[in-house]
Nucleic acid binder design. Structure first.
Length: 360
DNA sequence: AGTGCATGCAAATGACGT
DNA sequence: ACGTCATTTGCATGCACT
């Protein structure tokens, strides 16, 4: 019914962008196939770490060298990973300057320059160089970012735990996840798309974005974390093969078939919304049969219509509550200013009582 | 114009009550 | 079965960057 939106349209070319990301320059493959000895790999890894792998190469030869270094580092990392738990030390991405478009190179190198720079140290330490404090509103369910921002800098383990959820641990994982994602050359959208066809819960680009930014409640984060953890582990194993064997499809990253997912968000047409709003104005609590009729008329699920009315009532109630509290605040401001010079507390107490009464 | 990320608004969900 | 309420989550879109 609805026309393709801008975001829907923008998703189409993104798939083709993926395949270009997946290109491995075949010219350099023989070099990598010769890397069999542990010493050579160790040497390459050392060189990789010393050479600053995110710098653009001056010529094809240095490009080839970077490819070798990157793959050997990944190979070693995979071996380490089989014995240790995620997250391992991040490895900066190999950027094929011979095949990549100018845009994608610069977008990875410049957009996430800070992230990738922090990915280079071996100890995986998580500095806060590009951390942006996101203290925004008076939200009643504070995000991890806002909670951490309000804590003192020398906070202990206890103070970073909310409802048994260790915020520092989630923060570390979120950062490591982002670094790994970027190192694998994946966008948030691609991760979301891949998750949507795996077994278990799926999350959108928005959810991944909020998770990485910690713009999410601790409860929500602790729910998403294991999903991303599991997916990343599997993706890396498959990506490792891809790096050795040549280009494959992003679809290869997902083996499991669909199970129950959250219902896709309904987008009502403007016409449907108009009719729904008209119906709401007439009656905020339509009967079961009324809702069935509306659903049939507009060609939506009856349950979708029922939920729409619930949400609409809730929205109305919330906005009324908000405007009421705004009015109270305005009244208080004017009241308190007029009472400023009043030395007697009787009036103040009365105003306070009145205020408390309204609030209760 | 194309791309990736950030975010506002509201659809969907879950807990609980009747 | 359906309501309310708090919360989670995704679509649509804006923004920055090239």
């Amino acid at each position: 019914m609805t026309l393709p939106t801008a975001s829907e349209k923008s998703r189409i070319p993104e798939a083709s962008c993926t395949s270009s990301n997946e290109q491995i320059n075949p010219f350099y493959s023989p070099f990598f196939s010769n890397l069999t000895s542990q010493q050579q790999q160790q040497l390459f890894l050392t060189q990789l770490l010393l050479s600053g792998a995110t710098c653009p190469p001056l010529n094809p030869l240095t490009n080839a060298l970077q490819f070798l270094l990157h793959n050997s580092a990944l190979f070693l990392q995979q071996q380490q990973q089989q014995q240790t738990n995620f997250p391992p030390c991040p490895i900066p991405p190999f950027i094929d300057y011979n095949n990549k478009s100018k845009e994608s190179i610069s977008s990875i190198n410049l957009k996430h320059k800070n992230d990738l720079n922090t990915s280079v140290p071996l100890d995986c330490s998580l500095s806060d160089t590009n951390e942006k404090s996101t203290i925004d509103d008076d939200d009643n369910s504070p995000t991890i970012a806002t909670t951490l921002a309000t804590l003192p800098s020398n906070n202990s383990e206890e103070t970073t735990t909310v409802d048994g959820i260790n915020l520092e641990e989630i923060k570390k994982f979120a950062k490591a996840f982002k670094l790994r994602r970027l190192a694998l050359g994946l966008t948030q959208t691609q991760v979301g798309q891949a998750l949507s066809v795996t077994r278990g819960p799926a999350y959108s680009q928005s959810a991944i974005c909020r998770f990485e930014k910690l713009d999410i409640t601790p409860k929500s984060a602790s729910k998403i974390k294991p999903v991303l953890e599991k997916w990343m582990r599997e993706a890396e194993l498959k990506y490792g093969d891809r790096l050795k064997n040549g280009p494959t499809n992003l679809q290869d990253l997902v083996s499991d078939l669909n199970t129950k997912k959250r219902k896709r968000r309904t987008s009502f047409t403007p016409q449907a919304l108009e009719k729904l709003n008209d119906a709401f104005e007439l009656n905020t609590h339509p009967s079961g049969t009324d809702m069935s009729t509306i659903a049939q008329e507009l060609n939506y699920d009856r349950e979708v219509i029922r939920v729409w009315f619930c949400n609409k009532r809730q929205a109305l109630k919330n906005s009324a509550k908000k405007s009421k509290s705004n009015q109270i605040n305005d009244d208080n401001e004017s009241t308190s200013s007029s009472l400023m010079d009043d030395k007697l507390s009787d009036t103040t107490n009365y105003a306070k009582l009145q205020h408390d009464e309204i609030l209760s």
